[in-house]
Computed example of a mutant assay.
Amino acid sequence: MDKKALYNLTYGVFMLSTKVNAKENGCIINTCMQVANDPVRIAISVLNVNYTCELLKQSGVFALSLLDQECSFETIKHFGFQSGRNVDKFDGIPAPRDCNDVPYMGWHSCAVISGKVVEQHDLGTHTLFIAEVVDAKLLNTNAPLTYADYQNHVKPQPEAVKKDKKIIGWRCKICNYVYEGSELPKDFICPLCGHGVDDFEPIYE
């Protein structure tokens, strides 16, 4: 099977947020689709190691901010490249709240969807949540950010590295899994988050 064929599937870029009592957190995900119309239901997939996934299993409610093409890498980095176990991602941010009192991104987002979980399925690396949409609203008229847009135009491109530096491993930029070895197999898939070689960066000695 040529797993690169899966790269042609289309994805968005979203900030998923939830809260349990006073604890609020959010993370970046790329998988959401509408799966039913009456009642309106959506499906989202969340990495099991994410703190947001842990909280969502407890709260059962979330806000999904649909990032737009004005979104900066710094915003995505803030919510996607650090863990809520170590930092309060909403500290000092005057984020608006949805009908479930969950904070969402009122900036760099073209819409927000509020959901109530009705089913969840553990898929190994991820949990699939099926949710009923309890509210939704447009925030601006900007086009939504796609995962391809993020990869090609938002994410910083790797800097050129001197040839005399030796590669000793490869780090997944999504979940920080480390593959030890100088060469990463072209068909390698991260065993933790399921991402391919395009989301790995070299580790130099």
Rank of each mutant, 00 (worst) to 15 (best):
D2E: 12
D2L: 12
K3H: 09
Y7N: 13
Y7I: 06
Y7V: 06
T10W: 04
T10F: 07
Y11R: 15
V13R: 01
F14H: 09
F14P: 01
M15V: 15
S17N: 06
K19F: 05
N21L: 10
A22D: 15
K23F: 09
G26D: 09
C27R: 02
I29V: 13
I29C: 07
N30W: 07
T31I: 12
T31A: 06
C32N: 11
Q34L: 12
Q34R: 13
A36V: 09
D38E: 12
D38P: 02
P39N: 11
V40D: 01
I44Q: 01
I44P: 03
I44W: 08
S45G: 11
S45P: 04
L47G: 11
N48E: 14
V49T: 14
Y51M: 00
Y51L: 00
Y51T: 01
T52A: 12
C53F: 03
C53I: 07
L56F: 02
Q58R: 13
S59C: 09
S59W: 03
G60M: 06
V61S: 08
V61P: 05
V61R: 09
F62T: 01
L66I: 15
L66W: 10
L67F: 07
L67T: 06
L67C: 08
E70R: 15
E74S: 15
E74C: 08
E74N: 14
I76R: 02
K77M: 08
K77G: 03
H78I: 05
F79W: 04
F79R: 03
F79L: 02
G80H: 09
G80M: 08
G84W: 05
G84Q: 05
N86P: 01
N86A: 11
F90Y: 08
F90W: 15
I93T: 12
I93M: 14
R97L: 11
D98Q: 10
N100G: 01
N100V: 02
N100L: 02
N100I: 00
D101W: 08
P103E: 04
P103S: 05
P103Y: 01
Y104C: 11
M105N: 08
G106H: 14
H108Y: 13
H108M: 14
H108F: 15
I113R: 05
I113A: 03
K116W: 04
V117Y: 05
V118H: 07
L123Y: 07
G124N: 13
F129S: 00
A131N: 01
A131C: 08
A131M: 02
E132I: 10
V134H: 01
D135I: 04
A136C: 11
A136N: 03
L138C: 03
T141A: 15
T141S: 14
A143I: 10
A143T: 13
L145K: 04
L145S: 03
Y150P: 00
N152T: 12
N152G: 02
H153A: 14
H153G: 00
V154G: 00
V154W: 10
P156W: 06
P158H: 14
K162P: 00
K166Q: 15
I167P: 10
I168P: 02
R171W: 00
K173H: 04
K173E: 13
C175I: 03
C175F: 04
N176Y: 01
Y177I: 05
E183F: 14
L184P: 07
L184R: 11
P185V: 15
D187W: 10
F188R: 06
I189N: 12
L192E: 09
C193F: 03
D199A: 13
E201C: 12
I203K: 01
Y204Q: 14
